[in-house]
Simulated assay, not measured.
Amino acid sequence: MDSAVIVKDLTVKFNGKAVLNQLSLSLKAGEIVGLIGPSGAGKSTLINALLGMIKVNSGSVEVFGHEMPNREVMSQIGFMAQSDALFGELTGEQNLEFFGSLQGIPKKELVEKMGLAAKTVNLTEDLKKPASDYSGGMKRRLSLAIALQTDSPLILLDEPTVGIDPELRQEIWKELRLLAAAGKAILVTTHVMDEAERCDKVLMLREGHFVAQGTPQELKTQYDVETIEDAFIKAGHELQNGGGQA
């Protein structure tokens, strides 16, 4: 598989403190990579670095062979932020249309893609309502639909299933699997450990370091545990006890 994203020795500092410290990773076409870590570990900062939205202090971020930031490459990325960036005065449908045009989706394809994305997140019946009338969970679903409607080969999802019920989460993960099977490269940040189990590869981020990375089974074997959650806790304990970075 070809690498969609290559990060080498990435360091990002805020106020002189390293939020991301010497991180390296690759994300290949056709795979789902889960990024897990506690709040403040640097997950959203890493996503923003991949997008070229923040200045890096050292190291490099390449997306499709181009160093970020790169405006042309941005059009090849489907992105869902941790905070919903929606226009409350517009309906759900109008939000999808607006962002679809920004994503460069041809008009003749947009209606079909909007409909499929809305169905995936169970919003079809609510598309005519203003986004300001949506609940928090509905806004998350609309933001996810905006990211999913794009035909971008790289999809970055920052906590996509927060506030979404378990049944719908199952449907969303089915769609992510279909997208990966179609050759999309997908990076998902999550606090939900059973979602990490669904990923092809898991990156465990703590205090700006990758304390471990590998397939779910590799990590469970490495730490001699039954679940990813237990592996994550054990990796954190090793970091605190001076075990270092993976």
Results as ranks from 00 to 15, higher is better:
E175D: 06
M53T: 08
S26A: 07
E167G: 06
S44F: 07
N57L: 08
M204V: 11
I172Y: 00
F64H: 04
L116M: 15
E238R: 15
A181G: 03
L144Y: 01
F64V: 07
E159G: 14
G100C: 00
T227P: 10
G34H: 09
D158T: 00
L178Y: 06
A246G: 15
T120L: 06
E93S: 14
N15M: 13
D194H: 01
M138T: 05
L178V: 09
L219E: 09
G104D: 12
A180H: 03
L154P: 09
T215Q: 01
T189I: 02
F79R: 07
K201A: 05
L102Y: 09
L142P: 06
V33M: 12
L176A: 05
L148E: 08
G78T: 01
M68W: 05
D9W: 12
E167Q: 14
K128Q: 08
S143E: 01
G59R: 12
L178W: 06
A85K: 14
P216R: 11
T215D: 02
V111Q: 15
A145I: 02
E89A: 08
Q245K: 12
L102G: 07
G236T: 01
M53L: 14
L187G: 08
E207L: 10
N122Q: 14
L90R: 14
P166Q: 07
D230T: 11
R71E: 15
L154T: 06
S3H: 07
F64Q: 09
T190L: 09
Q103E: 07
F98W: 07
A29H: 15
S44H: 13
E171I: 13
S58M: 06
G52T: 04
G30S: 04
Q170E: 13
N21E: 13
N241A: 02
K201P: 01
K28D: 10
L157E: 00
V33R: 07
K234A: 10
V225F: 05
V162P: 01
L123T: 01
D165N: 13
A29T: 08
T11S: 11
W173M: 04
G115D: 04
L127M: 02
D200E: 04
L144F: 03
A145E: 05
V5L: 12
D84Y: 08
K17R: 13
G236E: 03
V121S: 05
A185L: 12
